[in-house]
Design a protein around this nucleic acid. Sequence first.
DNA 1: AATGAATGAGCATTCATTCAT
DNA 2: TATGAATGAATGCTCATTCAT
Lengths: 206, 206, 206, 206
Amino acid sequence: MGVARSGEAATGREPGARSGRRDQLLEIAAGLFATQGYAETTMRDIADATGILAGSIYHHFSSKEAMLDELLRGFLVDLHERFAAAERENTDPQETLSTLIRISFSCISESPHAVAVYQNESATLQRQEAFAYVGDYGVRIERIWLRVLTAGQEAGVVRSGLDVKVAYLFMRDAIWSAVRWYRPGGQLSLETVADQYRDLLYGGLF
Amino acid sequence: MGVARSGEAATGREPGARSGRRDQLLEIAAGLFATQGYAETTMRDIADATGILAGSIYHHFSSKEAMLDELLRGFLVDLHERFAAAERENTDPQETLSTLIRISFSCISESPHAVAVYQNESATLQRQEAFAYVGDYGVRIERIWLRVLTAGQEAGVVRSGLDVKVAYLFMRDAIWSAVRWYRPGGQLSLETVADQYRDLLYGGLF
Amino acid sequence: MGVARSGEAATGREPGARSGRRDQLLEIAAGLFATQGYAETTMRDIADATGILAGSIYHHFSSKEAMLDELLRGFLVDLHERFAAAERENTDPQETLSTLIRISFSCISESPHAVAVYQNESATLQRQEAFAYVGDYGVRIERIWLRVLTAGQEAGVVRSGLDVKVAYLFMRDAIWSAVRWYRPGGQLSLETVADQYRDLLYGGLF
Amino acid sequence: MGVARSGEAATGREPGARSGRRDQLLEIAAGLFATQGYAETTMRDIADATGILAGSIYHHFSSKEAMLDELLRGFLVDLHERFAAAERENTDPQETLSTLIRISFSCISESPHAVAVYQNESATLQRQEAFAYVGDYGVRIERIWLRVLTAGQEAGVVRSGLDVKVAYLFMRDAIWSAVRWYRPGGQLSLETVADQYRDLLYGGLF
DNA sequence: AATGAATGAGCATTCATTCAT
DNA sequence: TATGAATGAATGCTCATTCAT
């Protein structure tokens, strides 16, 4: 978009804009993958939306799968890191849980496309060897949540009758599914949704 | 459909198995659509799994789309009817809500494939004219839940601070998403899950 | 045409109605071949129009090609016989020519479907070994016309400057093409058309 | 179309050959459509004859129908324009008629494939919405001929007893059908045929 | 005679990918 | 970097034909 090609100061690209086309392609692809589905999105769709020809994408990405991989891996690495940091830096289970929920909604807000793609495609993807890491990260993230929930139960702040695994799945699905209907700029602000969700979860959990 | 041909008793076909191939095909297709995705499932996949040739499917269904249509329409008509009946026959909002939740889990138990397909494909499908009814039924079902939640709020049993629309989406997503991970015959019985979900929702709602 | 198969008497079928379904099928097929084209007409089209299932046609005809064959062969045998008789029974070239033209229009009137099929498909068909006879009859018929035209030229009634081959093709195409636009029961009666054509041809020929 | 790429002179491409493959494909397709029929010609036939794979055709044409459309539209637009110009630029009816006939034979000589396809497929095509223009051009062309014939009748050079519509159909069919048997380089030159046809028509008309 | 299920070959079309320019 | 022509495998679908009932 508006890439000044002629010479661009002899590749003296300003930091932050980095490899323009590459980022642009990945962003556009993410949007299409999220709304149409990965399989339903063709390289031509991506190319058309970017204003180049399909074959030219291969100068930036080795395959369509590589685009999906980069998108998901970036998202999962970041998400896991943020969750892990939250667990590391907090001691109070209830506080930690609040942070995990807040991080989740931040992600929906910041990378809705990646979240949607993860929601829609991860089940199918995990069966492919190349995307086994998607399942791995899912497990690692689940373990964090389970540890926090268990700690909460031991601290007596989370209901003792609860199966923490069920509670985790319940929370995970409720929260992440919001990406499917949440439209930024719509009637509801993400904060409002996040607050209501927290109340609903807390009322049920504690 | 369900034509009882003379001699059916003679061939010892149990009632319910009815028009063999057609039902078999739809069931197999449903399973594949649910696990691989509609677009990712080829007519050959379905045919192979059934033990016939791809072209032969067209003796029973006019197109791949027709199979999806029959699957979704049957599911939605039935689901809507059960929800509508629950609203019609109950007066107490909390009781009604319990029934709606119970029906939802029944559906997940009885037609997991249809539920999964609906979960995974409805967003994409609604943009197609031929599947506009998918969105229509979604709206009708939402209205039922919203009426029940509002009635609950007016009766003072549902928290007054709650945005019923947000609460509905929260419940809907949490419940229906269970189809993605629930495996019949696994560690958790559906009843256990349903009970825990009801408790989590009630704790949050009331 | 009108082949009396053994057993016809046994079934007590009134003469003239003969083997009902078979004739009916061939007639319906002829109509469809004529209007949609042979390749574009499916066995299902024919079956639907007849009120039976496609597979059932094979109780009457061994193949789709067999239907076309029977249609064309019957037409060509009959046409050739009539032309040959006209040549045999007439002595005056101009009289004979008139008869040939009259026979042609009779055919268009009596078997418009067969004429149309012959017009539309003969070129493609002649390349197939099984339909080589179509070309053969074409040649035989052409020879009759050429003999009559040559006799007319020798008798001094047909213009001497004329290349009889060109004249024949001119006449043949003009006359038979009428089947493409002539609609019985329309504004023009076949007689009117035939008269005008004869005048146009005579004016040009003599 | 006709994009003069830099280096075209360098590659020594003669002007008129222009965008090689596309033109080549359309020409080859035209030949196959004309001799085998449109429906009977497969994309593989065209691709094989061109020396590429069937799928590659779609790089140049969006569909098989698009090829037919381009062929017919180009032919009809050109033919109509030439007929219209002839009517516009001539005052004497007999002279105009001569020109129309001459133009027709020119077309047969220059674009025999397009003429043949039009002859063979137009009847079937007109029923399809996308090819309605084929019928429209047919009507427009007919109107030109009818106006000229009528003017000739009023000027007293065309026989008064003639139904001009019948005369037109007679002429049209006789002339255009020649494409079916005329082979350039055969015994008869097109000029010879055209001359004989003109004489035959004039003898009949005037 | 007719049905209806099935076959197997073929068709137009799509699409990720490659590569010379 | 980008183009555009080409590939080759796959996809949904059609259709003449067969055959047990």
